[in-house]
Nucleic acid binder design. Structure first.
Lengths: 347, 347
DNA sequence: TGTTAGCACTCACTCTTGCAGAGTGCTAAT
DNA sequence: ATTAGCACTCTGCAAGAGTGAGTGCTAACA
């Protein structure tokens, strides 16, 4: 049931042509453009067989053939050859990422931008989830009579703060004491653990004022932990899909945009995907059944894993897109390896 | 050249009908639905006059009439009557805003959400620009051997921090010294002033190490100031426009979405608008000539001004939308007056 | 003098028909 | 096994006819 050499050639030709022109491709044009040494009639016969095997479909009787999801899958797994990035694209990526090297989130955002600029598809990039990050210290600082700042610093350099307004008065000393006590309590625990674990009731002191202060601070503490744990999602080039024939119907476009508007749901789905370059084509996706989704992972500090991705029609230039994504993730991992432990604030 | 009472009635009827059904309205249907006590023929004569005066247009000879931008302007200025919000909407607004009262940015985001949920239009909300905010203090804190946190606190409680990686070693004392020195230098200056003003070269000490440290910190300081000055823009319900007949063409929809994708440009334009409820209809806008844009302002702490807005087709329910926006901005101003000086971190 | 009824006219929209073009599927010849 | 040839199918486009909604004008009316 394997495909013959010639069938593979024809299939590849059809995919190339269709990816290029977005129109069903007929036997005659294949015979003309790709020098296979056979006549259109022969190609027709092969195409008929390929269709029977599920690699091609037929919008209607007298239209040309269109590759099926199965065909793209075969192409991606066996036929596709790595493409080399143009020097121009490489330089673009290097320059842009270098420009924001010392601001973590900005770098990630730029990665998403680059991805959509170069591929002309919709793209996104996510910061790593820091569930595994551990708490380094917690500090409370006075701002004015009733306002203080709560700051949580993770060992990866991840910092988040919240301003909170207290209903009880405080003293500089009590703030320091509580901060130190919280640090002692939570130091070394993962954010996840700190958030989900039982709340330590023991303030380590009997001083009533401190206990009250603690009561005011804890809810914000938890909320801030939650905030630190949130993955940041940057999306770019969503409007690119309007230029793709597949999405020229308003309904399609709407569905597409709405999927992205639900950021939380989208983030969750993306986090579930495996590491490395993962391609899911058409029906292989549980939603967006007419899209291809490609994700790739980068590493921060060797362990934390972030993701970038592109979304487009199944009809896309798989070879180019995957090459770009590999280059980009390598570049990202590289910069985050050197500046290990680096992470800017959560703006 | 003033309009007669009857002409106003007819104009109002046409607007109501068109806003409701999005289809050109004819003389007969007006005569039937609105009890004006005159025949279609009379209405036709009046419509003809109204058209001559520029209040109505005519897609083609045998279509009904459509209100012009000028008609909406008249309606908004003179004819429109305040609508009372439904108890349901009021409750929705109160509840949702109350839920996030202690997180400034979250409240603003919720305001945008509410606006799009209730009006079914595209909406946005911006945090106030804090150009006028003054620096309260600056602090530098150690994280690890090469990493420190720079924190700038404004007098409005606005806090931003950045983690930065130093190329030179530091000591705890030098950090404290520099922090204090910077605080002395910048305290009381507005963010804008601090950012644009000349950089104070004098470190107030001759110690070489401190001067070097300062050299590493200043660029991040500037960048962080810039970040604090940035207005945060939250957009919601962009996909709502897909449900509006005016935007059922893919080109229109694309233009619309692209305008929002350019956030910086959009923000700048919105900042230029006056305070209070401002309505610009169709051609009155310099871009989006077929949209109506309504903005309204809320106040934080009495002085800082933030904006919310909706964007939709010129054919919208002006009375309802403005009522909702007034209610919402009053509510926002109210909560930010009570919790004056409150502002969460810049997550 | 303002209002109305009546009627011709216009235009968008829809449905049908016809036609050209692209492509297939089958058959018979090579 | 491959190919040429031909009938067949289906889409897309354009032209033409019919329909319906709505206007504009005129003449009659109160």
């Amino acid at each position: 049931m394997d495909l013959s050499e010639r069938q593979l050639q024809i299939l590849q030709a059809i995919i190339s042509d269709y990816v290029e022109n977005a129109e069903p491709v007929g036997s005659r044009s294949i015979a003309k453009k790709y020098d296979l040494g056979v006549s259109p009639a022969t190609i027709r016969n092969e195409m008929s067989d390929l269709e029977e095997m599920g690699y091609l479909t037929h919008p209607h009787t007298s239209a040309g053939r269109v590759p099926s999801d199965k065909a793209y899958r075969l192409y991606v797994d066996d036929l596709m050859q790595k493409k080399n990035l143009s020097a121009r694209d490489k330089r673009l990526i290097n320059d842009r990422l270098a420009a924001s090297r010392d601001e973590f989130d900005a770098t990630i955002r730029h990665a998403a931008e680059l991805l959509s600029e170069i591929t002309h598809l919709a793209s996104f990039a996510m910061t790593p989830s820091v569930n595994e990050d551990t708490i380094a210290f917690i500090r409370l600082m006075p701002v004015d009579a009733r306002t203080i700042i709560l700051m949580i610093v993770g060992n990866s350099g991840n910092v988040t703060n919240t301003t909170l307004r207290l209903s009880v008065p405080y003293t500089q000393e009590s703030l320091e004491m509580l901060g130190k006590h919280m640090t002692v309590t939570y130091k070394g625990r993962t954010l996840d653990d700190a958030l989900k674990g039982e709340i330590i009731e023991d303030v380590g002191t009997d001083i009533e004022a401190l206990s009250q202060l603690r009561g005011s601070v804890m809810p914000s503490f938890m909320k801030t932990l939650e905030d630190m744990l949130n993955v940041h999602l940057y999306m770019e080039g969503m409007t690119n899909i309007f230029n793709i024939p597949e999405y020229s119907s308003i309904d399609r476009a709407r569905d597409f945009m709405q999927m992205f508007a639900r950021k939380d749901e989208f983030t969750r789905k993306m986090l579930d995907r495996d590491e490395g370059v993962v391609i899911t084509i058409g029906d292989e996706n549980d939603s967006m059944k007419d899209c291809t989704l490609i994700t790739a992972t980068y590493h921060v500090d060797g362990k934390m894993v972030g993701k970038i991705g592109v979304i487009g029609p199944t009809r896309m230039k798989y070879d180019e897109v995957t090459s770009i994504m590999e280059y980009l993730t390598n570049n990202l991992s590289e910069s985050f390896r050197l500046t290990e432990g680096k992470d800017d604030d959560k703006k």
